[in-house]
Nucleic acid binder design. Structure first.
Lengths: 129, 129
DNA sequence: AATATACTTCAACAGCGATTGAAGTATAAT
DNA sequence: ATTATACTTCAATCGCTGTTGAAGTATATT
């Protein structure tokens, strides 16, 4: 019973999530934050890109809710970013479901030219191999 | 022992994959193909977009190796697309690994202002909560 | 008070890619 | 042979976004 399907709305939302994380610098920022580098300036050093660009990409991730920001209580100039584990799990769950190989169905022969039953069976054998 | 990390090269390649599937129409095409609708013309009807746009997006998916195309042996004008289960599994595996919550590390306090040990411990408690 | 630090915001540019309409190709039907 | 079908390719447009340099803001240091 692999009846799971995704609606257009599901997929449009999923595509928006994917647009957030399909940028190399953002993916690297996420990786560094996951690995424990949460300081803005260290993230800039790790990626070797300009501070304002770091700031831009981090704000995209933050507005998407993938990370949260907090100021250093001792020196308010520093900012630390943390992963939102709930969003991480949602993304993981989506991909686990969407790319589940058990969902793959053979072609339903409702389209194509008029063919004989013998030819149709031949096609089904091809697509299921 | 959750020592898994991703290199820059890994993430650049992964971002390229994500760019392929972050487009709503392409995600919907994949969904329909997974569900068993493999015929080009039916895909166009399902998505209600122009045939040449369908063709464009399918060619992007095909060039990325996510789907394969085959002509109808009876009527060569028809084209049927099938999911590449190997690529599907690779994408699923990447997301399972990258978004594994066990990878999330607390902040390593190698950056930020000069602080006392007591303050550092306080920060660590905050980031690990 | 004046300077330095750690970002953030702004303005401008540039390149990519989704979309559209028209033309082109190959095969099948009449 | 002519027409129809099922795509595919081409040319052009348009909007979005990553990137850059400069200016701005807030906090800390001297």
């Amino acid at each position: 019973m692999n009846a799971k399907t995704f609606s257009s709305d599901d997929l449009i939302k999923s595509a928006q999530w994917l647009k957030i994380i399909c940028e190399p610098n953002r993916l690297m920022l996420l990786e560094k934050i996951i690995e424990g580098i949460h300081c803005n300036c260290e993230l800039g050093q790790a990626l070797k890109i300009a501070p304002n660009l770091i700031s831009h990409h981090l704000s995209v991730l933050r507005e998407a809710g993938l990370i949260t920001a907090e100021r250093d209580p001792v020196d308010n100039r520093w900012v630390y970013y943390s992963i939102n584990p709930i969003r991480m799990h949602e993304l993981q769950a989506f991909f686990a479901d969407f790319f589940d190989k058990d969902r793959i169905q053979p072609r339903g022969a409702t389209c194509g030219p008029q063919i004989t039953e013998e030819q149709r069976q031949s096609l089904l054998r091809m697509t299921s191999s």
